[in-house]
Amino acid sequence: MVISQLKYVLIFAVSVLLQVLLFNNIVIAKVLSPYIYILFIVLLPFDIPKALMLILAVTLGLTMDLFTNTPGVHASATLLIGFARPLILKLITTRETLESFSTPRVGNMGFHWFATYVSILVVIHHFFLFFLEAFTFDGFFITLLRIILSSALSVILIVLSQFLIFRR
């Protein structure tokens, strides 16, 4: 039990550090800025209490805000996907599958399921985040373009990371 909790502390730290030190410095063609730190929320076990999930999501967001000088922006977006995750799981998974596996991993759930699951979370998160960050609907289509391209890159990176690091 303690070991599995430690594992999630480690995933939290790695996600935040990767984002802050590596991916926040990457800007490709002025529009691509991937946010992969929500990997932490993606990987949380299925049976986690919903209230705890919300608190963890807000903590993750506030940690990011601390590094990017954006009070509340990341926290608000992560909170939203923390709230939405149980609903999404209900939508794309049957109760039996949720009971037979404990964690959302590529190995358990298959590539197709995992990619769908990550895509939905990433798109909701990015959509909310980018508009909250811009804080205006001026230049709607540029923001929309940033959301689409950045989401695509984030999904690819998160799914790839499953094959590279977080195997178990």
């Binding site: 919903k50 608190i55 954006t70 009070p71 509340g72 608000s76």
Partner: peptide
């Protein structure tokens, strides 16, 4: 869960707006 979500979301959005 819904109450907690609304409460936290209000807090974070207040942070965004005041900032």
């Amino acid at each position: 869960v819904i109450f907690l979500f609304v409460l936290l979301q209000t807090l974070t959005l207040t942070m965004v707006v005041t900032y």
